[in-house]
């Protein structure tokens, strides 16, 4: 399955390159995205546009991770429970990350200031933004070249990623630990909507069966040794 995915992504990438060269499609400047997210966003994180990521905070941070590694400043608005440790784990540089957990009624002004100043702005769900404010914000982002990643539907988004399924692997009945994370993502762009599978978390270091680990874990929670 993953090989088919990869081949499809490679083919799409080749097509995009040819289209850029022939001038049949405008080339939008964009930030790179990590390899694991690339099947969903073959064009990268397009600057000056809105990308919607619905249903997964992990995917939102993953989308912004490569940009941060390349020196982008990232602002996170209206996500009071944003786990910065996870952001660090995904490769976001915390020294160029600012959180505004509760922008309140001034969300439009705050988002505007962030779009002016920062390179990537993540907008959480339930921000007090009217449709008019969203249009103004998008126009401002286009002018400044800032990429907006919204957790909510946004009309005119360059790509909409909706997580329709999310599975964690690595756990048993009292053993193991969370090791692999697979997301089913519905991608809507100007092209035909498609469903892709992203392996956001892959633990290559450990054997698949994990037999040794189970035994070890079982020994650890044995009440006799725990006492």
């Amino acid at each position: 399955m993953s090989t088919t995915q990869q081949r499809l992504a490679a083919a799409r990438g080749a097509l995009a390159t040819v289209q850029h060269r022939m001038g049949t499609r405008e080339a939008l400047p964009s930030w790179p995205v990590p390899e694991r997210v690339a099947p969903a966003l073959p064009d990268g994180l397009v600057r000056g546009r809105v990308t919607v990521v619905e249903g997964s905070t992990s995917l939102m941070t993953a989308v912004a991770a490569s940009a941060s590694a390349d020196g982008a400043w990232i602002g996170v608005l209206g996500m009071p429970a944003f786990g910065a440790a996870a952001a660090r784990w995904r490769g976001i540089d915390l020294s160029r990350l600012a959180l505004v957990p509760q922008p309140g009624v001034q969300a439009a002004e705050v988002a505007g200031a962030c779009v002016d100043a920062l390179d990537v702005v993540l907008l959480g769900p339930s921000l007090a933004l009217t449709d008019a404010a969203r249009r103004r914000l998008a126009a401002r982002a286009r002018e400044r070249g800032a990429a907006i990643v919204s957790a909510e539907q946004w009309s005119g988004a360059v790509a909409t990623l909706t997580v329709v399924g999310s599975r964690w692997g690595g756990l048993g009945a009292g053993q193991g630990r969370l090791r692999s994370h697979v997301l089913d993502v519905r991608v809507v762009t100007r092209e035909r909507p498609r469903l892709v599978q992203l392996a956001l978390e892959v633990d290559d270091a450990l054997p698949r069966s994990g037999h040794a680990y189970r035994r070890q874990d079982a020994a650890r929670i044995d009440p006799r040794t725990a006492a």
Partner: peptide
Amino acid sequence: GADARAHRGLEKVQALLGAEAVIQPRE
């Protein structure tokens, strides 16, 4: 220049919402 711009912008947000409203996380 980008760093200076980001600092200025975040200070502007602080001026709007108060200092505690903009948070810098550190590991």
